[in-house]
């Protein structure tokens, strides 16, 4: 089985690095983008199993990004990672097809847990 490919989209470098440093040792292939448009370009170029995205980003926000992904790549699982979680955006993101959401700051364990659950669901589906 090939390595699962994960795309991290966040305007904060430290979050991108944290995700990469958490996920790579566990055997995931991690790429990142600093905004949603760059993320969409990367998704167009290559296939990713999971997208971890921030909600509040300059330019296109997480909700719009999620909508785009689900429209064009319905098989790609999206996990919303946010430091500004309101129940409304959480409900909306799940409604739009996000697999789950993680609050910042998250522990490596929490991140790995949600990623492996998302992948398992993917493989079952």
């Amino acid at each position: 089985m090939s390595k699962a490919r994960i795309l991290v989209v966040d305007d904060e470098p430290i979050v991108r690095i944290s995700c990469r440093r958490t996920l790579e040792p566990e055997g995931y292939e991690v790429a990142h983008a600093e905004n949603a448009l760059a993320g969409l370009d990367m998704l167009t170029a290559e296939k990713y199993d999971i997208v971890l995205t921030d909600m509040k980003m300059p330019g296109m926000d997480g909700i719009e990004f999620l909508r785009n992904i689900k429209m064009r790549w319905p098989d790609t699982q999206v996990v919303v990672v946010t430091g500004y979680q309101t129940i409304d955006t959480a409900v909306l993101s799940i409604k739009l097809g996000a697999y789950d959401y993680v609050n910042k700051p998250f522990t490596p364990h929490q991140l790995l847990d949600v990623v492996s659950r998302a992948l398992n669901r993917d493989s079952v589906a």
């Binding site: 966040d10 944290s18 440093r21 958490t22 509040k56 430091g83 609050n103 910042k104 700051p105 998250f106």
Partner: peptide
């Protein structure tokens, strides 16, 4: 809310690298 959003990212870094 703005401060919370700003602080949560650096805290993510501290928690992650702390664990690593």
């Amino acid at each position: 809310a703005g401060v919370a959003h700003e602080l949560n990212s650096p805290l993510t870094g501290i928690v992650t690298f702390g664990h690593l």
